[in-house]
Design a protein around this nucleic acid. Structure first.
Lengths: 192, 192
DNA sequence: ATGAGTTTAGACTCCGAGTACAGATCTGTC
DNA sequence: GACAGATCTGTACTCGGAGTCTAAACTCAT
């Protein structure tokens, strides 16, 4: 993928909606050209193909998540406090990029097969969560778990699934409205 | 889709592995024919097309989840007890159908866009969870949450994501090994 | 004005989904 | 056994869309 010129980024981001609605394979290059306003030949000049466009969209949103999570990790307070902040940060990105988030969930499988994307998911989502779980044991704000990696994956699944299906789709709630329940689930569970 | 004759079901289930590995669109009808041993013309005799085969796979696994969850719901004990049983039941199905589970996650978007499949996800996963959350408030075993539907989605996301990525893929742990951490997360959270 | 990089239209190749159909094989019925 | 109908399968076909190629137009620095 060539580096995009001024303005091209925003145009191409508009393809997210299309892809989220129909899935990548049902989306024709012609359609992407039509909705983004970037001619097909130009798309092929900048991107390797359809998958590359999808990878670009994912990279954009995962970069954003990475930055937001990084900031949340830097706040001071207990690990539990930072865990709350990380979850809220992730939900806010879903709110900011609803179409790309939906596309990401829908074409997750493809995403996971691209090593670069996979690594981004790892570093933006799973690794920080896992680190927090470990730090929380040290500072006493979180309880120890048997498999931290597994629990990190579960938390990621909970936040992403709920976020996407309640914010970017379905009831279209705000991130803040959703955050309470999700944070409470992660920290306290649903037990009485 | 015509009703399948004796033995055809098992053969076609073998396609799950293929689809889970490469995704549906990268999987050629010829490939499915080759790995299942069912000739392409015969596949088209029984199924409308590729999507129909995928829908069949999803329906099979979702039926299974539906049955397992149903049984778990029928056990006696508090809502919290049954919630534990439901989560374990869902993890066991992932363990029993790893390839189909991976395929489901891989082509999640397609599943969500197919009304019949979507309804099955709803009735096998989300509705029971939501009902348990409500019953748990009544019997005092679970705490009330603001949006039960949202929390049900989050729990589904946690269980499915962790199950698929730790049982059907990645570390390939057993359902029982994974269940402890996941159940604990859902009921008690990770807070100290 | 020249040349390098960018942008685009349009025509082309190639692959794979799905179709058509005819022949083969199986199943029951008289 | 012979026939009718359904089931099964090989082969040849159409058609749409991904990606390629080329050449022309346009931009912009020197």
């Amino acid at each position: 993928m060539r580096t995009l010129p001024e303005g091209m980024r925003e145009k191409v981001l508009a393809a997210a909606e299309l892809i989220a609605d129909h899935g990548l394979d049902a989306t024709k290059m012609e359609d992407i050209a039509a909705t983004t306003g970037v001619p097909k030949a130009t798309l092929y000049y900048y991107f390797e193909g359809k998958e590359d466009i999808l990878a670009f969209l994912f990279t954009e949103i995962l970069d954003e998540v990475g930055r937001a999570v990084d900031n949340a990790m830097r706040t001071n307070g207990t690990a539990a406090d930072r865990l709350r902040a990380v979850v809220v940060a992730q939900l806010r990105v879903v709110e900011a990029y609803p179409a790309a988030s939906r596309a990401l969930q829908f074409d997750l499988g493809r995403a996971a097969r691209t090593p670069l994307i996979d690594e981004q998911v790892e570093s933006a989502y799973r690794r920080p969560l896992r680190r927090l779980l470990e730090e929380g044991v040290d500072d006493g704000s979180l309880r120890p778990v048997e498999h931290p990696g597994l629990v990190a994956t579960a938390v990621l699944g909970a936040v992403a699934t709920a976020g996407i299906n309640a914010i970017a789709a379905g009831p279209r709630r705000s991130a803040d409205e959703v955050a309470g329940d999700i944070v409470a689930l992660v920290i306290d569970g649903v037990g009485a």
